[in-house]
Design a binder for these strands. Structure first.
Lengths: 164, 164
DNA sequence: GGCAGATCGTCTGTCTAGCAGACGATATTA
DNA sequence: TAATATCGTCTGCTAGACAGACGATCTGCC
């Protein structure tokens, strides 16, 4: 009753952004804690996911989709290659570009991470009923993918990550 | 059909975290763009909000509630004081501590920011129906505040920011 | 009261991540 | 072939974050 749809949120002080930031911080902390095998913690997990499921054609595309500078991507991938999680392959169609593929070990590590992250998320959302969690995920996804017609770097990210 | 509620999220690769990160990135970018008057962009907005509505007793409490190192808080507040948004006052009860209060100008700036942030949020959530936005906000807030019985730095943040 | 330890805010030094710019290699276009 | 753009890498610089030390002050104990 305190938040009827018609209420204009007077004095709410943008709790939306706060909740978002707090949740992401917690999520990131938990993913970090679960990412012993990965360099760069949460970002490494995001990178590996993008490599495996993103189907990005080049290192530059990978960097753009994650919002990372290309020079940063270089040494980030160096670390991943050193760990044997990822390989750089020359693109035969464009010999300047490198196609990033996950090794078998990289795929295993990602699968393990996915499981741990899923568990961590369930724990993170312990305050919500199961149906509410599903709803929250759906709303978040829709909000993240359909953020309007104008400039929208996020949609590319999410779409790049999505299987299709 | 790809995301029916009953689907057990096989192969979903933790879109939750992605949506969260993407949304927060967009939110933060928009707040940054709207924060011409504030130092430190989004973080400055968070800080000023905590100062005005947080009722935190000391600089250290402020830093803790925002997850910022106390040495960082020092020069962060320096910038805010230089801009005339905030004042450091000695706490008469504990002369070591400084009580941070917003100036009139700080309150005005925050009010203007609140309005702009609200507008930016509406734009950010343009892909959702009004009722869905309300629902998303509620779910987010509940998830952020009730994240479980164990370690939980976020709850303190959100609770510190909340008026009550 | 006097003393030891803890806490507050500040300052200093150090370390790291990120970015601009340049570079060779390669592709594209004229 | 020549001119221009793009890809990935490397170099150097800068800003931000953290550990540690410091004076001032509070608290608890003798």
């Amino acid at each position: 009753m305190s938040t009827t749809p018609t209420e204009t949120r007077a004095g709410r002080h943008s709790l939306f952004g706060w909740s978002l930031a707090a949740l992401l911080r917690e999520w990131s902390a938990r993913v970090d804690a679960a990412a012993d095998d990965l360099p760069q913690g949460t970002r490494g997990y995001q990178l590996l996911t993008a490599v495996v499921h993103g189907n990005l054609p080049s290192q530059a595309a990978l960097a753009a989709s994650l919002g990372i500078d290309r020079t940063v991507m270089t040494y980030l991938l160096d670390a991943f290659e050193d760990c044997g999680l990822v390989e750089r392959q020359r693109d035969p169609a464009d010999r300047r570009a490198r196609r990033i593929v996950a090794t078998d070990r990289g795929q295993e590590v990602l699968a393990a991470m996915d499981a741990r992250v899923t568990a961590a998320e369930e724990e993170l959302l312990a305050g919500l009923e199961p149906a509410q969690r599903v709803l929250l995920r759906e709303l978040l996804e829709r909000a993240a993918t359909g953020t309007g017609p104008d400039d929208d770097p996020c949609r590319t990210v999410v779409q790049a990550i999505k299987p299709a």
